[in-house]
């Protein structure tokens, strides 16, 4: 997963641009001219830089983010797994298509995964199936209330520069 050596160094202008276009893209014929004006940059720089970012996979998509549909149900679940069993269980969990995320985390409950399906019954059935196969403690934590759900990543100048700059100071 880690590709730290391929990280792209961002200038302050890049960071401003990425933070701006994450927020929204204006709904008008020439949205990038509007953004260029706001940021006091050249329109052709804005467009070509964004294109580059897309080629480098810094930008995944320019798209509409749909609100979670009522027709889809999800839960966050976690197992408490001994170290030597983590890989087996992680692979078993991954084998379900309905699992969208699966992370090892630093905690007694160490394997955290998200299950999404069309109905509560289906999600429940998958969790039950897993707990029948895996004899370790399991937490099942469905969403009761959503206060915010959108992966906008606010970038900081201090966090996006080269490694040595990064090591010097995080307090700013």
């Amino acid at each position: 997963m880690s590709d730290s050596k391929n990280n792209i160094n961002l200038s302050n202008a890049d960071i401003k641009l990425l933070n701006r276009v994450q927020k929204c893209v204006p709904l008008c014929s020439n949205p990038f001219s509007v953004i260029a004006k706001e940021l006091n940059e050249d329109k052709s720089w804005v467009i070509s830089r964004l294109k580059e970012f897309q080629e480098l996979n810094v930008i995944r998509r320019f798209a509409a983010v749909k609100r979670r549909k009522k027709s889809s149900v999800s839960t966050l679940a976690a197992f408490k797994i001994p170290e030597d069993r983590i890989n087996d269980v992680a692979h078993l969990i991954n084998s379900y298509d309905e699992v969208s995320h699966n992370h090892l985390r630093e905690h007694d409950y160490n394997l955290w995964f998200v299950v999404q399906d069309k109905s509560e019954e289906k999600v429940h059935a998958l969790i039950t199936d897993l707990s029948n196969h895996v004899d370790f403690p399991l937490l099942n934590l469905p969403i009761l209330e959503s206060y915010h759900s959108d992966m906008v990543i606010k970038l900081d100048p201090a966090c996006c520069c080269s490694e040595d700059v990064d090591k010097k100071d995080h307090s700013s």
């Binding site: 590709d3 990280n7 995944r60 998509r61 983010v65």
Partner: peptide, 29 residues
């Protein structure tokens, strides 16, 4: 698109970035 925003079918209309590509390798719950 404006209608979709107004009626909350979409929560955001903009760019979706890949945090790992800009060095955001760490996430915390």
């Amino acid at each position: 698109i404006q209608e979709l925003k107004d009626s909350n079918v979409i929560s955001r209309f903009g760019m979706i970035i890949n945090p790992e590509s800009v060095g955001y390798h760490c996430n915390a719950l």
